[in-house]
Write a protein that binds this DNA or RNA. Sequence first.
DNA 1: CTGAAAGCGCTAACAG
DNA 2: CTGTTAGCGCTTTCAG
Lengths: 339, 339
Amino acid sequence: MATLKDVAEAAGVSRATVSRVINGQAGVNPETRTRVLRAIDQLNYRPHPVARGLATKRTRIIGVFVPTTVTRLFLDHFFPPLLQGVVQAAAGRGYNVMLSLFSDEGDRDSYAHSVHNGYMDGAIAVVSALMSNVLLPRLQAEGFPLVTVGRWPAMDAPSVDVDNRAGARTATEHLLRIGHRRLGTITGPRDLPMPQDRHQGFEDALRSYGIPVDRRLVVEADLTELGGMVAMQRLLEEKPEAVFVQSDTMAIGALKAIRAAGLRVPQDIALVGFDDIPLASLVEPPLTTIRQPIQLLGHMAVELLLDVLENPGNKNAHRQLQLPTELVVRASCGALRTR
Amino acid sequence: MATLKDVAEAAGVSRATVSRVINGQAGVNPETRTRVLRAIDQLNYRPHPVARGLATKRTRIIGVFVPTTVTRLFLDHFFPPLLQGVVQAAAGRGYNVMLSLFSDEGDRDSYAHSVHNGYMDGAIAVVSALMSNVLLPRLQAEGFPLVTVGRWPAMDAPSVDVDNRAGARTATEHLLRIGHRRLGTITGPRDLPMPQDRHQGFEDALRSYGIPVDRRLVVEADLTELGGMVAMQRLLEEKPEAVFVQSDTMAIGALKAIRAAGLRVPQDIALVGFDDIPLASLVEPPLTTIRQPIQLLGHMAVELLLDVLENPGNKNAHRQLQLPTELVVRASCGALRTR
DNA sequence: CTGAAAGCGCTAACAG
DNA sequence: CTGTTAGCGCTTTCAG
């Protein structure tokens, strides 16, 4: 591999000049520049990123932190496209992506490994609903540039998230618009941010239709299919016309419970989910749901992070981004088209 | 951040000695060693990997190359657990994982970016059935350490793969064992290695039962659900009793085609798939299929790569690993238990 | 067993 | 506009 020095010699200039050309710095004689460029080309020279990293203190590597729990849970449908979005966006800006799993309890090992690994300029942390982590706040306190995907109330790091509240409102309003009035809902754990947000959206919708919230029609579950099933069994006693379920996974459980009770979806009970997981379109009946722009989320997370990395003053701009969701109408709500 | 120099001063030794301690080199006075260790601890010193990388020419970063096509196709169910396996195994050995997508055509950009990026000591390439790539062979020719996941006949790089042939044979023999005789099969593109291997396994099974292969019962498709559906429609005319479908994704398509024709699975036609994607257990009826040890595949790929990286002589050992598969009996084959 | 010295390949003031 | 001079933080001969 050719080095800067080789190029400098070949071009008959100093290494500093070559460096200037490579980094596109102004103030190099055009003629010299082309001479250098030719030498670079002939020697097939590439700057050595490690050496550059040592000199500049910037590696152009960003980390992606993934709680190990996520990998196996409902967010499975979330992580791959997110990662793809991140990697694409990063590549587009000349950054590399380094992956780091960490356990919920942020033990010393994973801490040392993922961060003081010292390679990363900053990182994007996937904040699952399932973690009560100690690593992230610590990193942030140390001034390590961090962007979270998902809201994490205990931290004021820049974040990207879907507008859960608006999405839930849209879902619920859809149910109301097509005529349902006695609405139930199955929520996730109410001590987590995401279920809270989605529930607010649900209430927003009811409120906009002047319908009071009936506590008996609100059942909490744990975001799993089984949880959705159990919750639905309970909800059945209240005879709702339609149910907004906070996640597709739970909605599928609900579907089973309804069917087990000898009822039909959507004729007896209409259902709307959230997330648009791949399975949503495959169950019978296909689920009406709220789609998240997952890949875009990844893109935006990168933008946010690079913004922080490259303009260390700009920290006021662009914090806490919220991306819009999209209603996907399928059969489970009982309205095949609503244009 | 404390540096080597700080530690050396605090311990009253030279930087060389500290370096020796850190790297666990023999030949350091135990007493000196503990003194150094204490200083390291007090200063909370961590070696700076970039500096170390510059000095040693090894970064302890391994790459994972993913063809962009994979991210959206059937291997979606494959990639996340694989990646998890890779990252875990790498972390266990003190390596970091860098992700790199590349397009099928290995254009200059992605080439430059992913490889001459110069960060990686070596890489694991996910060889999808869908790529005809030029990047990998080039890298290999340049002596870049590479391990492939999946077989890639044009290359003799070390690889890990599932034993597709044996798995297909097991699946087919299961069908035969429970009494089916007129077997059809839906294959992937026959010019790709994986479909070829699986088809060989299918023929192996028939042969072991003394049944001739009937060309009319072999239909090729493109590994998509739609492809499976179309293929099945065609196969229906031949009235097979049972069908071995080379992938679960296609099997789900086949399922739909059978149902659309007013027939039942498994009563009218039995089905066995391959891959055990998450959806396999969720469709109706649940799919009997062949499970791959995906995460283990990731682990082994790392082992293989590190073996090459750390013992540059050993290249004869461990090449072309094949991992066993497992038959998962569910309802679609018509035999709920076969012990 | 330990230290001195010379880099690894690049960037970044500072002169000129 | 260009070259000189110092490093970035660590490893690695080579002496001692």
